[in-house]
Simulated assay, not measured.
Amino acid sequence: MKKTNLFLIAAFLLGTAAFIAADHLDAPTVGGTTADITDFFAFEGADSNNTVFVANVQSTLAPTGEDPDFDENVLVEINIDNNGDLVEDLVIQAIPRNGKMYFFGPYAPGSTGLNSTIDANTTLQGEVMISGNGNATVETMNGLSYFAGLREDPFFFDFGTFNAVIGGDADASGPNGGFKTEDKAVDTFDGTNVLSIVVEVPNALLGGTFAHPAGTGVQVFNTWVEAKRKQ
């Protein structure tokens, strides 16, 4: 069994059913690297029997120029909690090597928490060429579909106005507390790219669900993403 030890750097947590978490430019120890998670999405696929997971890393990449590289020492791990205890029951792992992104899982991890290993013997494996400027490659293996590469940043945020509000430099007397209306806001991330890791998984491979804690009657699982650097 081939294993690699890794250390947790950053994480996002969310429930399922078309949810998104976003985080840009506020992690100075990993900023500008592919350990810097910017967004995490989980939503129903075009086939309602599938769930799509999207982990984006490294914001504000130029749309032109040389193709950026994923860090081969950084593992991106999507965690799935099937019983609501906030401990991962299944993981989907992605790690780059020589221009390809390799995927493992979903499978039950050998350990949970801050440290992870890759079980290279799991039967659920896939790989895809990393897409750069001008190309987009998708591979389907074992019923799962994979993509990794450059994509336009989907996050809309007026970073300048946000900093002005936080710094006390904005006019906070208006109805928006200093924030601009939608028609006047400036999307700081417009025209920039992120590095995306995408995997579409049949729901039958994602384990069980539990009743939504808010009592909505909807069955859910928890999911979050981590970036872990090799020790």
Rank of each mutant, 00 (worst) to 15 (best):
P213I: 01
A22S: 14
P175Y: 05
V91G: 02
P154F: 02
T38C: 12
F189W: 13
F70L: 12
A94D: 03
V54T: 06
F162Y: 15
V220N: 11
F7G: 05
L144E: 12
N203V: 02
Y107N: 08
L61G: 07
G167Q: 08
D187C: 08
D85R: 06
G110C: 07
Y102L: 13
V74D: 07
P63D: 08
F41K: 03
A120C: 12
G174H: 06
E182T: 01
T122I: 13
S116I: 06
T38W: 07
R229V: 10
F179R: 00
L124K: 14
F40W: 01
L206S: 02
A185D: 08
T216Q: 04
F53D: 06
V52G: 05
A55I: 02
I80M: 10
L61K: 04
L206N: 05
N222F: 15
A170G: 08
D158Y: 01
L14V: 09
S59A: 14
F19Q: 14
L75W: 00
D171G: 06
D39I: 03
I95G: 09
G208Q: 13
R151Y: 07
A211F: 09
D187T: 04
P213A: 00
V54R: 08
T137F: 13
A42M: 12
R229N: 06
L205A: 05
T216G: 13
P154A: 03
E44R: 13
L13G: 15
N115R: 11
K228W: 00
G217H: 01
F179S: 00
P96H: 04
P175W: 07
V54P: 10
I197E: 04
A204P: 00
A27L: 13
N133D: 11
F70K: 00
L86S: 14
A214W: 12
R151P: 04
G160C: 00
G84K: 05
Y146E: 06
K230W: 01
G134W: 09
F70C: 06
F104A: 11
F157I: 10
L8C: 06
A42S: 13
L13Y: 13
D39C: 11
P202S: 02
V199M: 02
D190R: 10
K184W: 00
Q219C: 04
Q219N: 11
N135Y: 10
Q219G: 09
V201A: 07
S145E: 05
G217Y: 00
S48W: 09
L8Y: 08
D158V: 05
F155N: 15
L25Y: 12
N49T: 14
I92W: 06
G177V: 08
A185E: 09
T223I: 04
N82E: 15
P109Q: 11
I20H: 10
L8A: 06
F156T: 12
A21F: 08
F221D: 02
L61A: 00
D183R: 04
A170F: 02
Y102G: 07
T112D: 06
L13D: 15
P28N: 02
T4S: 09
N49A: 15
L8R: 11
N115H: 13
D47Y: 08
D36N: 06
S131G: 05
Y102H: 15
P213Y: 09
L205Q: 09
V220P: 04
S196W: 03
T123D: 15
D183Q: 14
I9S: 12
L205D: 01
G65M: 07
L114T: 10
L90T: 01
G167N: 12
V198F: 10
F12N: 02
K184H: 10
A17W: 15
L61R: 01
T64M: 03
